[in-house]
């Protein structure tokens, strides 16, 4: 079976079947580029992902393995379809997978899914963040995402004034 080595930013290597790796848009492109440039068709591709550390890469691969039989979602899927897939595709496994993660890890996972072009994972992680901010007050959002108010003078008050017009009838 054709394998590919995927190496994280901190040097950990993962041996992955090419079939599974190709479920990531980025890895698929890299493998195909390697094949075109390599004389030896038997040679094992080696892909270094300099922006993703081992722990996160492991999570991405774990998610891909779990969803290996799902249809691959095109990256440019339109809004409504994408929403439907994200909701439909979020299984109990996905919920258990994301449950123990703190928001920092989820953010890294989003970046990794975005970088590796794994649409399904990007959808469920974005949805998790969305659920963390929906219905929260300003203070709760600041606390949850470790944000600080950088408004000066009466900027915040002006924004409140601006928001007052944004009331649905």
């Amino acid at each position: 079976m054709a394998l590919v080595r995927v190496i994280s930013s901190d040097g950990a290597a993962f041996l992955v079947s090419q079939r599974l790796a190709k479920r990531s848009g980025k890895l698929k492109t890299e493998i195909e580029t390697f094949r075109k440039s390599s004389d030896n068709s038997e040679a094992q591709p080696e892909i270094r992902i300099v922006t993703i550390r081992a722990e996160i890469l492991r999570l991405v691969l774990q998610w891909l393995q779990q969803h290996q039989n799902d249809p691959v979602l095109p990256a440019n899927q339109n809004e409504q379809d994408g929403r439907g897939d994200a909701e439909m595709g979020q299984s109990q496994w996905d919920r258990d997978f994301l449950a123990p993660m703190d928001l920092g890890i989820v953010m890294e996972l989003i970046l990794a899914a975005n970088h590796l072009e794994v649409k399904g994972l990007l959808d469920i992680t974005c949805k998790l963040v969305e659920s963390k901010i929906t219905g929260r007050t300003v203070d709760e959002i600041r606390t949850a995402f470790k944000l600080k108010s950088d408004f000066k003078g009466n900027e915040e008050e002006q924004t409140r004034l601006e928001n007052r017009w944004c009331v649905e009838n």
Binding site: E79, R83, M107, I110, L111, N114, L122, D123, C126, K127, V129, E130, I133, T134, G135, R136, T137, V138, I141, R142, L147, K148, S149, D150, F151, E156, T159, R160, E162, N163, C166, E168
Partner: peptide, 25 residues
């Protein structure tokens, strides 16, 4: 987070939450 990802997250956030985000920073 990259702009495209933020856009993806905010796509389905309700208007009230967006108003809160306007007051966060």
């Amino acid at each position: 987070l990259p702009d495209l990802v933020v856009e993806e997250i905010l796509k389905h956030v309700d208007k009230d939450t967006k108003l809160s985000l306007r007051l966060t920073c």
